[in-house]
Write a protein that binds this DNA or RNA. Structure first.
Length: 439
RNA sequence: GGGACCUUGGUGUAAUGGCAGCACAGAAGCCUGUGGAGCUUUUAGAGGGGGUUCAACUCCCCUAGGUCCCCCCA
């Protein structure tokens, strides 16, 4: 054998991708428990769609001109020469599944939720990762404005229940095709007058996606936008009515919201209602609004997408949905200093001697079968060490099985805090444990 | 796509162009029948590559990550 050169190749996780270590799992579990419970109450059914989809699904659905598709999509050719993509968002796959499985013929509306990883290739920063988890809820096949409010309420309540208060919904209406084409004409006409003063991006956007100019953060652009026509004034009767009702429902549900006429969102398929949910920090609420505006990160967002289905199918299908950025919500909770409780072992088994060790294996199995979380270190033999371990793991109850006890078919139950010990028959152990753990 | 700062054992950190030190955690022991303490011993480190230099953890360049900002979004 040659002498091995110790050249270590650094193995790191990819940029923007993170391991979720045991200590962080509880943040996720807590979130999962909450959305599962609330979805059940709202009667949303879970759907899981593949992480890998045809790239076309997003190019057509999310929109070829959007940043998500243009710059951020993980897409590649497979060996079979298919053009595929890691899903950057959840709505197109759900719509695809809806059509593929004939959910049109199920009783409408179809209320679905999903949870899982999504991928976008952009520079990582606060609340922004290349792999992130999203919870989303979609209602398909229903045009009633109550649906918009219900989706907002569901997302709002999940985040709220997770422990993040001071939530506020920003909401706007983009209108339908008819009214927003009128608006776009007016907007473009207005913007052209100032096009020399707009930033480079916005000059391009006048042609490619004039809506997005409203969203620009450049101060010069913002000044121009201040006096720009507002979509609200161009809504057709139906859209105006729809929006009004959504807001009324939000009032009834006591969900705090503010109208944001500049909220447009970067996905192509939205129509009528669009919204994002933010957490407002008490402390800098009053301070310089400018900085505040730029710094806030939305925890959730969504809207109505009555026209998305037509992209894939001739069918006409109203729908509305939204998603929560799970990492963003977790980061917020951490920022607030809240830690979900870890579910520690309740019992630790200490054994001394060979015969005891063998009986221990059986006891561990039986105790676990009785749904009691028990830990042991069978690799160690002395009592002191094993007790030390139980102590380090902060396990409140220790079972001690020595040679003496094993021979008599008995076992000691020790309460670590009070240092009280009871000798019980091994046959009665589970009963005794249940008594102790209940109280 | 553009920019700022950062990277020292598992973790948190210190100092220095000249032996990389400390704390915690880990392992072994004092001590195979009762834990939390103490003591002893011990494992383990400069993200990777290149350059300047007698000498680089330190200075320079590249690269990979991290954090953050612009852009955009969850």
């Amino acid at each position: 054998m040659e002498k091995e050169e110790k050249k270590t190749i650094p193995i790191q996780s990819l940029a923007g991708m993170h391991d979720i270590l045991p200590e962080d799992q509880f943040y996720y579990r807590r979130f999962e428990k909450i959305f599962e419970k609330l979805c059940n109450l709202y009667n949303f059914k879970r759907i899981d769609t593949p992480i890998l989809e045809s790239a076309d699904l997003f190019i057509k659905g999310t929109g070829a001109a959007t940043d998500i598709v243009q710059k951020e999509m993980y897409s590649f050719r497979t060996k079979g020469n298919d053009w595929v993509a890691l899903r950057p968002e959840g709505t197109p796959p759900v719509v695809r599944a809806y059509l593929e499985h004939g959910m049109v013929s199920w009783p409408q509306p179809i209320k679905l939720f999903y949870y899982g990883p999504f991928f976008r290739h952009e520079s990582p920063q606060a609340g922004r990762y290349r792999e992130f988890r999203q919870f989303g809820a979609e209602v398909l096949g229903e045009s009633c404005p109550s649906v918009d409010s219900e989706v907002i309420a569901l997302l709002f309540n999940i985040i709220n229940k997770y422990g993040i208060k001071n939530l506020i919904v920003e909401i706007n209406s983009l209108g339908c095709k008819k009214c927003n084409s009128k608006f776009i004409t007016a907007l473009v006409k207005y913007l052209r007058k100032f096009s020399n003063n707009l930033c480079q991006n916005c000059k391009r956007r006048i042609i490619s996606n004039p809506f997005r100019v409203l969203d620009c953060k450049e101060t010069t652009c913002r000044e121009i936008i201040e006096n720009a026509p507002q979509i609200i004034d161009y809504l057709c009767l139906e859209c105006k009515e729809h929006f009004k009702e959504v807001l009324e429902f939000l009032d009834i549900l006591e969900i705090p919201y503010t109208l944001n006429p500049y909220l447009v969102r970067g996905l192509d398929y939205y129509s009528k209602t669009v919204f994002e949910i933010f957490s407002v920090d008490e402390k800098n609420k009053e301070e310089n609004d400018e900085n505040e505006q730029n710094k806030k990160i939305s925890l959730a967002g969504g809207g109505r997408f009555d026209d998305l289905i037509r992209v894939y199918n001739k069918r006409n299908l109203p729908a509305c949905g939204g998603g929560i950025g799970v990492e963003r919500v977790i980061d917020k909770l951490k920022e607030m200093g809240i830690k979900p409780e870890e579910d520690e072992s309740q019992v630790f088994l200490v054994q001394i001697g060979d015969s005891a060790k063998k009986i221990s294996m059986k006891i561990l199995q039986d105790v676990r079968a009785a749904n009691i979380k028990i830990e042991a270190s069978l690799n160690k033999d002395n009592l002191r060490e094993q007790l030390g371990r139980a102590d380090k793991l902060k396990i409140p109850i220790v079972l001690i099985l020595g040679q003496k006890e094993a021979a008599e078919g008995k076992i000691l139950i020790r309460d670590m805090a009070s240092e009280q010990q009871d000798l019980v028959r091994i046959n009665d152990l589970i009963q005794e444990l249940k008594k102790i753990i209940k109280t």
